Amino acid sequence: MDERMVEAAQTGDINLLYELILNDPYVLDRIDPVPFSHTPLHVAASAGHIEFMMEMIKLKPTFARKLNQAGFSAMHLALQNDRTQAVLRLLRFSFPSLGGWLIRSRHESAQRWEEELLSWADIDGNTVLHIAAIRNRPPVVVEVLLGHLPRA
């Protein structure tokens, strides 16, 4: 990922993001095909830059379902870095948006992605629910996660 894009995501600078897009309209498209990549969404979630996260999800909803090279989603990173508000925002707006995007795009695996999104495990086998419980996150985070998980 471009060094300036990392800077934009780390600082939450949406103006810089759009400056980079203006200079290179394909800057985000080059990240998207990489199967395991640390996206600007991952960086912003780690830093807790909520508005930047929401802008990134609006521009590239596929980033919300990407795992980085270590097997972490943006949600995992937000939880690990004590970014409770970022976690709640991802749960309330990005995952329904991603599910809606999958359905609207008539993606053949839309239902499976919607059901499995929160069940993904990191390299240690922990889902975001496990991480929230292990790290003793506020009960509201655990409740929201439980409410979004598919019933088995």
Score class of each variant (00 low, 15 high):
residue 2 D to F: 00
residue 3 E to W: 06
residue 10 Q to F: 12
residue 11 T to A: 09
residue 12 G to V: 05
residue 15 N to Q: 03
residue 17 L to A: 00
residue 17 L to S: 01
residue 17 L to N: 00
residue 17 L to C: 03
residue 20 L to M: 04
residue 22 L to M: 09
residue 24 D to H: 04
residue 27 V to R: 08
residue 29 D to P: 04
residue 30 R to L: 05
residue 31 I to G: 02
residue 32 D to Q: 15
residue 34 V to T: 10
residue 35 P to F: 05
residue 41 L to M: 10
residue 41 L to I: 04
residue 42 H to S: 03
residue 43 V to Y: 07
residue 44 A to W: 04
residue 48 G to K: 06
residue 50 I to C: 06
residue 51 E to C: 05
residue 52 F to A: 05
residue 53 M to G: 08
residue 54 M to L: 15
residue 62 T to G: 14
residue 63 F to S: 00
residue 64 A to T: 05
residue 65 R to E: 08
residue 65 R to V: 03
residue 65 R to T: 07
residue 66 K to H: 13
residue 71 G to C: 10
residue 73 S to Q: 05
residue 75 M to K: 11
residue 80 Q to G: 03
residue 80 Q to M: 15
residue 81 N to I: 11
residue 81 N to A: 14
residue 82 D to H: 10
residue 86 A to C: 12
residue 86 A to Y: 13
residue 89 R to A: 15
residue 89 R to H: 10
residue 91 L to V: 01
residue 93 F to L: 09
residue 95 F to E: 11
residue 96 P to G: 08
residue 97 S to T: 07
residue 102 L to K: 04
residue 104 R to Y: 14
residue 105 S to Y: 06
residue 106 R to M: 09
residue 109 S to E: 15
residue 112 R to D: 11
residue 112 R to P: 00
residue 115 E to T: 07
residue 115 E to G: 04
residue 116 E to P: 04
residue 122 D to V: 01
residue 123 I to S: 15
residue 128 V to I: 14
residue 128 V to H: 03
residue 129 L to W: 09
residue 135 R to M: 15
residue 136 N to E: 15
residue 137 R to H: 14
residue 139 P to D: 09
residue 141 V to A: 01
residue 145 L to M: 11
residue 148 H to D: 06
residue 148 H to P: 00
residue 150 P to M: 13
residue 151 R to V: 14
residue 151 R to M: 10
residue 152 A to E: 08
residue 152 A to K: 11
